[in-house]
Every structure is written in C-alpha cells, then in structure tokens.
Amino acid sequence: MQSLVWTGRLVSRVLWNSINNFSTAPDPVVGKKLEPHLLSAVSGFPKNFTNTKLKKGKFGDDAWFSAKWKTSDVVGVADGVGGWRDYGIDPGEFSSFLMKTCERFVSCGKFNSSDPSKLLASSYYELFENKQQIFGSTTACIVVLNRDLNTIYTANIGDSGFVVVRHGKIVHKSEEQQHYFNTPYQLSIPPPPNHNNSVITDSPESADTTNFRVEDGDVILLATDGVFDNVPLQILLNELTKLQGERDVLEIQKVANTIALMARSLAFDAKFLSPFAKAARKHGIGALGGKPDDITVLLGTVAFS
C-alpha cells in the first residue's frame, strides 16, 4: 500500500513537471535563416518529499529556470547548500531567488547573451538589493544558446554541470569546481557577522566559462550533482543518445523523467557503486551506495528551424 502511494506521488510529480514544461516550449516561429532553438524539458525530485513545499522552479534545495529573450534561450540550475539548515536558514531560498533573478534579467533583456557569468554575477549582487536579506550558498550553472552565433555560452560555479552529446559522443562538458572533496565552489552570502571567515565564498567572477558551437540535433543535459553523483556517465550517455535530433518535446520529457527517476532510485540504492562512492574511495573514504540528494534534470535538444 505504502509503495502504491509513493508510486502515485512520483507519477503526479512527473505529471506536474510536464505541465510546467509547456511554458518552456518555444514559439513555432520560422525565420528565413535557420536558427537553433532549444527544445527543453525539466524533471526532478526533492530529496525529501515530506517537508518540502512544492513550488514552480524548485526541487527541494535545487532550483532551475528557463527563459528566452530575442535571440537567446537561457536555462540554468542551482543547488542550494544544505548545510545552512542547521543555522535556521532555508537553503532552497537562496538558490531559488538566484534562479528567479536570472529569469527576470533574461526576460527583460538586461543581459549579455555571450556572457552568462555576468548574468550570474548580476543576479548574485541583486540578492543584496532585497529588503529581506536572503542568506545561504549555492552552486549554479547557466547555459545560453545564442541563436545568432549558433553557439552555447556557459558559466558554471560548483558541481552542477552540463553535458553536450552529439551522435552518441560527449562533445563538450563542464568541469567540476571543488575546493576539496564534496565541497564545491559556491556563491554565498553568510549572515553577518562573518568575522572568522569560516564560510566558503567564491566570487561570481570565479565561474568557469566556456563556449561551444552547436549543431542541429545536439542534446544538452543540464543537471545538479544529484544526477551526476548517482548516474554513471555511460548510462546518461545511452539515454541522451536516444534523443539525437528529437523535436518532440514529449519525447524529451520522457527521457528527462527517466533520468530523474533513475537518479532517484540509484541515490537510495545502498549497494550501488555510484560515481559519488567512487570519488569518495579515491579520497580514501570507503563509501558505498548512492548519494541521496535533490535531483534536477533540464534536458534540451538543439533544433534548427
């Protein structure tokens, strides 16, 4: 009975995500020049169902956004650092505000479509402009598809990341930024006073930026560490390859759901040698099993039209 309820919940989550997703589908406008568009879908699970409020753009402490303006499609994910919960601070608020602010910047056109790190920085500084100061830290990854230049520009800070797959091969991927094991680079605003500097604060300028020319049919996966720490890259690759050239948003949604569900079940599999456990072993920590975490999957294909 319990499992039935759980399954029902999972299905409803997935359904709800799909409903949300309609807003991210681009307008079917056909220009004269063939321009790339990002057809995207999102899926994910919060680590803990019982004490999270369900809100659009959030999976637990993870947050995501998808927006577009003129010749750019922009997607992003952020993973709020959970440690703040011990200090009475909701870690999800920081990441969610950051992503919402990015979305606002994009949808009012106040961003440079070839400089996503600037977008990340402006949104970070915007956190100080709120009457109600929000504290916390987050990792973040933003991908901008610049339609004029057929190029994606990315900015990544921390251990969220992206993978670009073309014809079954990973052609481009983000580098993980870590201070030390399981401690990614992060944007943070600690509550004052911060005299002892014990809080890790990386400036938004330290984001890792790349650019990469995309082709028709490329598959882009943007996800938080809840996915990359639990699903081996080869399995991800197998799933993503199925989407090569896919233009049906529903198919993309299906794969996104599959990846999210896979990550979710592997995360709670205590006997699975997850990528996270492998990395831990490299650092001399004898760990086994997945890493229960919030999971966010943003999946898109590049379609020229």
């Binding site: 602010t101 910047f105 500084y125």
Partner: peptide
C-alpha cells in the same frame, strides 16, 4: 526606490505582465 545598478524596486519593473 531601487538603485541604478539593480532591478529590484525599480521603475522598469512596471514593464511586462504582472509578475
């Protein structure tokens, strides 16, 4: 109310659909 370098509490927020 907002500052020049920000988008919080600024006049430009009147643009677009109600947020």
């Amino acid at each position: 109310y907002g500052s020049e370098i920000s988008i919080s509490y600024t006049a430009y927020n009147i643009c677009g659909k109600p947020s």
